[in-house]
Amino acid sequence: MEKFTKLTSRAVPLDTENIDTDQIIPARFLKATDKLGFGDNVFRDWRFHKDGSLNTTFALNNAKYRGSILVAGDNFGCGSSREHAAWALVDYGFNVIVSSFFADIFKGNALNNGLLPVQVSAAYLKKLMAHLQENPTSEIVVNLEAQSIETTVGTATFDIDPYKKTCMMNGYDDIDYLMSKKDQITAFEAQN
């Protein structure tokens, strides 16, 4: 996993609520047995019309928006547990998702793939979304160490599990940690 400390980038505003993982990566793209290339199909049915032509009204296709931060509506990542959604977003080039609410499983999947979920208040999100739509070149600074997000509409702080924060900042993951606990796990099994 890549280390994450601080990111300065423009952002793509995607003003839709309840974005489920079926939209992020539709089921028909889940037949792969590796993690590569899912970015090609991220938001597939929103980015492309059924005949394969580009849907130019969709935020990700709008030339004025770019950057490695996605700012999305409330309750992002609900639905299926498919980690392919996190792989697809990372593969497409996002490192941070900002929303006012994240579904549990998606949040865990994102953190396990170096994709930082930044949860802000509904009011802050609303201001930020409107601001980005008007000022697409506006930059956002996300600082994991300080747990802060700085934008033209103000600075906010966000919560993250301290253990997960350490993992992200150092680029190590749960498997490394669990493997170091092997003896304890075996002892637990013996007692139960």
Binding site: E83, H84, A86, N109, D174
Partner: peptide, 10 residues
């Protein structure tokens, strides 16, 4: 409960 693939590996 449901888990992601990283957790399946864990």
């Amino acid at each position: 409960f449901g888990i992601g693939t990283s957790q399946v590996a864990q």
